[in-house]
């Protein structure tokens, strides 16, 4: 039955496409080149619009409208509550606490991702033996699903039988076991390590691609000018890599803001709220306290923050690279 529905959707889509195309052909003698271009572009952009509409824009609109109501799973009242959710949130210490944790997590993770990713990319870009093999090997963590990564580290961090404590104590680095994920001091750091493990390879691939785009002649020229080693890296490689770094940074920031699986599986926001990121706060508000309206409001604030940040960031990076 659904198969039939799938087919009919296909059929309708192709019909629309056909008609649009026919329409374009019919009109072709009347339309200017500019107009034809616009119609062609619109047709090309149609699928992306449909998909974004179905998966993001329409639920986003409903979430935004929810954020202005008291809507809860316990009382389905959707009436306007004159910014009540926003006022409550911006006054609650919980929200700022979660925001702080999220910023710490995102900031630290992205910086480490970038530093390690850059180091890895530079090394893998050298003329080394088994380069192709090594490049593939380094990508492995990225191929492991996040939830699996979380499971592996849950086991590695296990206080009594986990391998991490065993290694650290038998090397004499510490004398008592640490409950990494149950310690208010360590839990966030432990999560960051897992995130870095999984994300660095992606950063590395992108930076590696960026490195390969830098033509060898530039290096030659710089070398003739007497630059070498660090100087070459600082004055040639880094500036040329900047656009790549900036877009990778943006992608990683946006992705890490979204990080839910690791927090939920590894610590569930604990111990005592020390890893309660915005994603966890949203989930708790929506599903443990059942306040969907307020949960959506967190999302809206979060969207606004990221949006403003990315506009400023892109502008700053663009201006800087024009120098």
């Amino acid at each position: 039955m659904v198969a039939r529905r799938g087919q009919s959707v296909e059929a309708v889509l192709s019909l629309i496409k056909k008609q649009t195309m026919d329409g374009v052909k019919d009109m072709s003698f009347r339309l200017s080149r500019q107009q034809k271009n616009m119609i062609f572009a619109a047709v090309l952009l149609l699928p992306v619009f449909i998909i974004m509409m179905l998966t993001i824009i329409s639920p986003l609109i409903s979430a935004i409208s929810l954020s202005f109501s008291d809507y809860s799973l316990m009382s389905p009242d959707r009436s306007w509550n004159s910014f009540g959710n926003y006022i409550e949130l911006l006054r609650s210490s919980e929200f700022y606490h979660s925001l702080k944790i999220t910023l710490t997590y995102v900031g630290t993770t992205v910086v480490i991702d970038l530093l390690l990713g850059l180091l890895m990319a530079v090394l893998l870009n050298r003329n080394i033996r088994m380069r192709r093999f090594l490049r593939s090997i380094f990508m492995i963590p990225w191929a492991i699903p996040t939830i699996v990564t979380a499971l592996i580290f849950l086991w590695i961090y296990q206080p009594d039988y986990g391998v991490l404590n065993y290694m650290l104590t038998s090397l004499g680095i510490m004398d008592t076991n640490i409950s990494w994920l149950q310690s208010m001091d360590w839990a966030l750091a432990a999560i960051i390590v897992v995130a870095v493990f999984r994300q660095t390879p992606l950063v590395c691939v992108m930076l590696l691609a960026g490195l390969q785009n830098i033509s060898a002649s530039l290096y030659e020229a710089a070398k003739i000018d007497g630059a070498s080693g660090w100087k070459l890296f600082l004055h040639v490689t880094l500036p040329l890599l900047k656009p790549v770094i900036s877009s990778v940074t943006l992608i990683m920031i946006v992705n890490n803001f979204q990080m839910f699986t690791l927090f939920f599986t590894l610590t569930n926001g604990g111990p005592a709220g020390s890893t309660s990121s915005l994603a966890i706060l949203t989930y708790e508000t929506a599903f443990s306290k059942y306040e969907l309206g307020k949960g959506s409001a967190i999302g809206v604030i979060w969207l606004a923050l990221l949006f403003v940040f990315s506009v400023l960031f892109t502008r700053y990076m663009n201006r800087n690279s024009e120098h």
Partner: peptide, 17 residues
């Protein structure tokens, strides 16, 4: 359920903090 999860914080606060 939420109250119980919240309550587990008391143990963390006494033992870890």
């Amino acid at each position: 359920d939420n109250a119980m999860k919240q309550a587990s914080d008391m143990i963390v606060i006494t033992t870890d903090a």
